[in-house]
Structure formats: structure tokens, C-alpha cells
Deep mutational scan, measured.
Amino acid sequence: PEDEKKAKEALKRANGDEDKAKEILRKLGVDPDRAEELLRRLR
């Protein structure tokens, strides 16, 4: 869904750096736990 698209985009923008991607997602208003879960799934 929408969050998943955001997560993929964030990872791309962060050049695969998960911590940076998490930060980006947090700024986009995605719940930190949700962000973590999404990134884990994309790994």
C-alpha cells in the first residue's frame, strides 16, 4: 500500500541505508515501528 511505496522510495533515497530510510519515513509521518517492519520486509 501507500506506506510500502514510501518505504521503497525512502530506501532508494537513502541509498539502501536503513537508518537513513527510517529517518525519512519518520519525517513522512510513518509510525517508527511500522517503518521498521516495512524496511525489514523489503530487505
Rank of each mutant, 00 (worst) to 15 (best):
K12T: 09
E36C: 05
L11Q: 02
K5C: 03
A21W: 02
K6L: 15
L25I: 02
I24E: 08
D17T: 02
D19K: 14
E9Q: 10
G29T: 01
K8P: 01
R43W: 07
R26T: 14
L42D: 02
L42Q: 04
N15K: 10
E23H: 06
E37Y: 07
A35V: 11
E23K: 07
L28I: 06
R13H: 11
R26S: 11
L38F: 04
D19L: 13
D33S: 11
P32L: 10
D17E: 04
P32I: 09
L42K: 02
G16H: 05
K12E: 12
E23R: 07
D17R: 05
L39N: 00
E9R: 07
P32W: 09
E2W: 12
A14L: 01
R13K: 13
E2S: 14
A10P: 01
R40F: 08
K22D: 02
K27M: 14
A10T: 02
K27Y: 10
K6V: 14
L38R: 00
A21T: 03
L39M: 08
V30L: 11
L39F: 08
R41K: 14
K20R: 10
K22N: 05
R34C: 05
L38V: 05
K22W: 07
A10E: 02
D33I: 13
I24D: 04
D17V: 05
V30G: 01
L11S: 02
K20H: 07
A21S: 02
K20A: 12
D17P: 00
L39T: 01
D31A: 13
K8W: 14
E9F: 11
K27E: 15
E18R: 11
E18K: 10
E18A: 10
A7L: 07
K6P: 03
K27I: 12
G29V: 02
E9V: 08
K5F: 13
R41M: 14
E23W: 06
K12Y: 12
K6T: 11
D19E: 14
G16N: 06
L39K: 00
R26G: 09
P1T: 14
K6W: 15
L39H: 00
R40L: 09
K8C: 05
L38M: 08
